[in-house]
Amino acid sequence: MSVKKRAKDLTLLERIYIPEIIKGLALTLKTMFRPKYTMEYPEEKFVPPPSYRGRPVLVLDENNEERCVACGLCSRVCPSLAIDIQASETEREKERYPERFEINMLRCIFCGLCEEVCPEEAIVMSKDYEMAFSNRENAIFGKDKLLVPVSQLKDRIEFLRSYK
């Protein structure tokens, strides 16, 4: 009866192990002299591509008015319940605006569903990834921190339009 050779069966040379170790050592030695790709963060900053999903922000349009109509879809779709909105009435044509719009950045998971569901292109994912808080209260971003002029978000909006 012949025993079928299996892929995991080792040859004698492999079983002695020492040549394999030497191969491994050669590989790591080679790696030691390769160029490094580390980005030295605080001095050198990563500029994300448009596809990057950073901190969600609210868009201020060309007339310096918020686009958001407080429809609550982002809040509804948010899987981690990070978004809290209180709508109110405005005299402007769109009738409705967010009196309070808060994103709890401790809950946010940067999934981008809010951006995807938004009917007004009012909430988009920015390139901002620098978020550190010293307490929970600071992690709740209100409209003051969320509103960003549309000119700073051109990249992302173009990216979104090319995929919608």
Binding site: A70, C71, G72, S75, R76, A87, S88, E89, R96
Partner: peptide, 9 residues
Amino acid sequence: FRFKARVWE
């Protein structure tokens, strides 16, 4: 009740 809340909330 206008704009006070969405019904699903």
